[in-house]
Design a protein around this nucleic acid. Sequence first.
RNA 1: GGAGAGAUGGCCGAGUGGUCGAAGGCGCACGCCUGGAAAGUGUGUAGGCGGGCAACCGUCUCGAGGGUUCGAAUCCCUCUCUCUCCGCCA
Length: 434
Amino acid sequence: MFDIKWISANPEAFDAALAKRGQSPLSASLISLDEKRRAIVTELNSVQEKRNTSSKQIGQAKAQKDESRAAELMAEVAGLKDRLAELDASEKALTEELRNALSGIPNIPLVEVPEGVDEHDNQPYFRPNESEATRPAKPNLHFAPKEHYELGERMGGMDFEGAAKLSGSRFVILKGQIARLERAIGQFMLDLHVNEHGYTEVQPPLMVRDEALFGTNQLPKFEEDLFFVPHGDSRLGLIPTAEVPLTNLVRESILSEGELPLRFTALTPCFRSEAGSAGRDTRGMLRQHQFNKVELVSITTPETSGDEHERMLTCAEEVLKRLGIHYRVMTLCTGDMGFGAQKTYDIEAWLPGQNTYREISSVSVCGDFQARRMDARYRDADGKPQFVHTLNGSGVAVGRALIAVMENYQNADGSISIPSALQPYMGGITKIGG
RNA sequence: GGAGAGAUGGCCGAGUGGUCGAAGGCGCACGCCUGGAAAGUGUGUAGGCGGGCAACCGUCUCGAGGGUUCGAAUCCCUCUCUCUCCGCCA
């Protein structure tokens, strides 16, 4: 969410940034709405001031038993009442209107983000001294590779038809060695981030209030992507990603600069209705209503969020390096970025069965966009509260990592070798389904 | 599910209609004291919003929302959350 003061001070910059996102200019209407609001607030304050002074004088008059003076003042204050109620109501309405308008505007991209309309304009990302060769190579398969669901169904470890009987489409039942492999991948990634990358492990609630979903931008615009369960007279939302509870850990608080950065990680189920993706990726477990994911969240100062973004990308990449899975990193273009992001890197894993790259992680820096929605601040060197910066990234999606391991480590006979990094989590075995 | 208690500043805790954003203590910051430190001592120490170049002024906030009143932390209503006991339960 944007600061209306910043928009007022930089209307051209704001509209230009919106244009990069393919949005029409909004500064003029927002500024005039804010001016209306401020005029009301100013008048409201002065009427309140009048009421407060008179009320104090009434108290003094009564203390001095000057009943006629008191009655006179009371009549005066009574005359302010209607106006006061009127101003109060319109102040609330205008503030609400402004907040609604602001909360529907997507974050603006950092200057270095490439401009573009969709995923075709995303750009490969390499650091200096980095190339395809410095990343794990594609597997050398001397046979026609199968897709993960063929491999999984063949060994009785993936049951889509059974899941459909229980829950409909976009669910899967994992069994036996595949279920264990999925668990091993999650544990491996969580341990990596906790033990080597300095993240604090968290087990958050999987059901959250609307306020939390507003904080991380799922509401109000993306309600149809979520599942809700009734709760009393209200409801709770099933988290579509652990980004929601982890980021909201700092909501409505003022942190000290010394405790930043905060780094949280969690392995949780995620629930998505996939309302907008009917017909896409219907085969297999690439796109499910429920899947496990290891999430990374960082809370930083404004000065350090850029470096933290690079660091977080490194943490997510390390998963694929240890698993020995070929991947590429893409800088998302302005048209393909999520609503709350200033800049996003996607990590795409190579899937031999599909003969293509598929997104396995998305790492975003949000600036103070979410912090404003959550009212999450820290005290800077001058002791003044400032909004924190928030970052989130998958580290990585467990279901998709399972797909990647299966397809990249498949053998001609349909068995799957276990990457060495996962063997300790699999009781030391080196192959399943053989 | 039944019965009861409670929610005040970073923390503890006073405050049952007027000058209370709020005593006192702790913590923290700065100063004095000291060779240095401790102890002692003095001062300061919430956030939002509006106005102002600023100093500053005003306003709102004592869980949230509404009401009574000239005036509410204090009275009334609704909600949320926390705690205790009983029941049930992984």
